[in-house]
Amino acid sequence: MHINELMQFLLTGLTLGGIYALIALGFVTIYTVTGHINFTQGEFVMLGALITASMVKGGTGLWAAIIASILLVGLFGALFERAVIYPARNSPVVTVIIITIGFSVAVRGVALLIWGTQSYPLPSFSSGEPLYVLGATMNKQSVWVLCLSLLAVSLLFAFFERTVMGKALKACAINRVAARLMGISPQRMSLFCFTLSAMLGALAGIVITPTTTATYDMGLMLGLKGFVAAVLGGLTSTTGAVLGGFLLGILEAMGAGLISSGYKDAISFLILLLVLLKRPEGLLGKPDGKRV
């Protein structure tokens, strides 16, 4: 085993991890503030990817298409919250989970009607020779993936820690009754979270498309991976979601490289099972802690 090979797997893992982290953050943002697990998260990823790919195919500039797509998917997330989640806001958690699963199937179906089964490519964000890092190659798109996910994560952290809106969201997650008495409307926070999570998902889908291409059913697996990453991080912590994402990406890449690439997905779900059975509070969560 060459150290170069390990380095290569690590780089691949970090790239994948950045994507998973973005999707996981979507899960965590919605869960902490509303208590819902939104399995439509993966479809936000798919929509972001396919809308961008279609727009670029239609002649729109790459960056314009990316921004337009993120905004459109954000709008879609907001409409989804108002039309689907809001009417069910007083239903049990399980009901809402099933609603989000059902809705994701419907979105996938509509995407199949619109885009068909073919895959849509997207050019790399920049051309040029791959970079060489300690004997491993890293293509330019991977650098973009890493940089954009880290940028998005830092902006999100700054938002939660440094802005009043972020504090209001945190407050709503920590103690909803007290937050309402401070004049914070949980319904507005919910709307905001779904919009934000949709935009994060779209970004994840867009940055991964130059490497994998976009298809109508890409959201299922990516959404589940993001969920595994979020659970790995404890579901309630943004830091946990990011670490969970990168950890999952690296484990997958190592497993694929060292064992067999056929086991890539199996590794993820084995990890999910292990975490749920042995440490359901996640790696960073406190046992028996209240949802915060």
Partner: peptide, 28 residues
């Protein structure tokens, strides 16, 4: 009914947010 996991001043800032001149969304 405090916001645990938040600092003392952050707790009070949540109370103060409503008097912000800009809407919360704009502030964010």
């Amino acid at each position: 009914q405090l916001f645990r996991n938040m600092s003392v001043v952050e707790n009070v800032m949540v109370g103060a947010h409503r008097r912000g001149k800009k809407g919360m969304l704009q502030a964010g």
